[in-house]
Amino acid sequence: MEHLFSLKDKVIIITGATGLLGSQHAEVVAEAGGIPILLDLNQKNCDELSNRIQTKYNVEAVGYKVDITNEEEILENVALIKKKFNSIHALINNAANNPKVEDSSEKAFSRLENFPLSVWNSDLAVGLTGSYLCAKHYGHLISTNANGGTILNISSDLGIIAPDQRLYRRNGLPDDLQPVKPVTYSVVKAGLIGLTRYLATYWAEKNVRCNAICPGGVENNQNEDFLKEVKSRIPLGRMAKKDEYKGLVLFLLSDSASYLNGSIISADGGRSVW
């Protein structure tokens, strides 16, 4: 059965590769025999992750410092990869800013009324424009393969449902100072669903599939009170472990998902159906 999920020798681009989930995507590609190409903003982090993957899984892994909001940097990277590997078989659009509910001492910065245009522009530049640019260039190279390939967009449960702002309330603060999940997170993750549907038909005749997964939240040393509230909203009664999306990512990248195209798959413990 292993051949059903083999990624042997497939060259797979992963953006935001050194982050919490990006590194998990990279690991599962390597576990299945693929060649993870790690893109992120810090070369040192890319090198450390690629070295760890090569040592652990005995596969080739390469890291590149690429700003995916910069089209020239993407074009240069495409040329490097094409020269080194000849082709690309898959792209995982994973990179995104992670706008904090509150990371400023200034007045309720995350609230819509106060949300800075500069942060809006930055978040959309990475999460949406960056994904579009990567699809435009890495996706185009995938479309030149005889057997096509796949694009996987990492959306979120908050691309399907609205954030429950009650989760972020703090006792003792008036309503106009309560922190909230920033608007850009929802906009970016919903936008990726639209991009997925567009790409699913754009290169379909060249056998390039595009799907999206909508992960729920991942446990990552959050406040216990916050965790309790989140868990009460999830039918399975818990948040995800960081490695629990590996199987789904592997399936969607593999030939086992060869007839799956344009799908938006919730992987949120049931939160979005409650």
Rank of each mutant, 00 (worst) to 15 (best):
W203V: 04
I154R: 04
S131L: 09
C214Q: 05
D123I: 06
L199R: 00
V188S: 01
K136L: 12
N220M: 07
Q178I: 07
Y132M: 14
D123Y: 09
M239I: 13
L133Q: 13
R197L: 11
K246A: 11
K241R: 15
A146R: 08
L124S: 03
T184R: 00
T196K: 02
T144F: 01
R209S: 07
I160D: 02
A204E: 09
L167A: 08
T129W: 02
C214Y: 06
M239W: 06
G159Y: 05
V126T: 15
N221P: 08
L167S: 10
I160S: 05
V218L: 10
Y202C: 00
K246D: 10
R233V: 05
P174A: 06
I234Q: 10
H140Y: 13
N145P: 11
A190N: 04
N207Y: 03
P182R: 03
C134S: 11
L141T: 13
T184A: 14
P163D: 13
K181N: 13
I142L: 11
A240V: 01
A190C: 00
G247C: 02
L167N: 09
V208T: 10
L236F: 15
Y198I: 00
Y168S: 11
R197Q: 13
D123R: 09
V187A: 14
H137G: 09
S122M: 14
N207G: 00
A204W: 00
L141M: 14
G216N: 05
H140N: 13
R233L: 15
N221V: 03
W203K: 08
T150L: 00
G247I: 03
S232C: 07
Y185N: 05
I234F: 04
Q165K: 02
G130Y: 12
K228R: 14
G194N: 12
G127L: 08
L158Q: 12
E244M: 06
A146P: 00
M239R: 12
V126S: 10
R209A: 03
G130K: 03
L248A: 08
I154K: 06
C214M: 09
A125C: 07
